[in-house]
């Protein structure tokens, strides 16, 4: 079973997304800030990280940067989650190494589709 690490400071959102992913057959781990995201990523070695851009202490971008800089972690695909509107955020996320992007409020179909596509893409790129 694939494990997904969910990182968001909104615990209600974590719970709901977690429930949703579990029913769709994923295993789920949680982190609520940038620091615990890194340690959880090391401990749980998830197949994918779903990361909120607007984390409080040390924002999502910083966390993404740390993940990318970490040789042990930079193979894990990161999908960014944001409540900010406009294309600028998406472009920045992609430029800084995210593999996927989800706009809040997240629709169920989008969530699963983006996660699945990202997983498939990263597997095929690893294989080749």
């Amino acid at each position: 079973m694939k494990k997904i690490l969910l990182v968001d400071d909104d615990k209600d959102l974590l719970r709901a997304l977690g429930a949703r992913l579990r029913t769709s057959g994923y295993e789920v781990a949680f982190a609520t800030d940038g620091v615990s995201c890194i340690s959880a990523a090391v401990k749980e070695s998830p197949s994918l990280i779903l990361l909120d851009v607007g984390l409080p202490a040390g924002d999502g971008y910083k966390c993404l940067e740390k993940l990318q800089a970490n040789l042990q972690l930079n193979h894990i695909p990161v999908v960014m989650l944001t409540g900010r509107e406009g294309p600028a955020v998406q472009e920045r996320c992609m430029r800084e190494g995210a593999r996927g992007f989800l706009q809040k409020p997240v629709r169920k179909e989008d969530l699963l589709e983006v996660i699945e596509t990202t997983l498939v893409q990263s597997e095929s790129s690893c294989a080749s």
């Binding site: 968001d8 909104d10 209600d12 959102l13 709901a16 997304l17 949703r20 607007g54 409540g83 809040k104 409020p105 997240v106 629709r107 169920k108």
Partner: peptide
């Protein structure tokens, strides 16, 4: 408001 926007539709 930002958080409510983010989590409402998931529920």
């Amino acid at each position: 408001g930002h958080n409510i926007k983010g989590n409402g539709s998931v529920y």
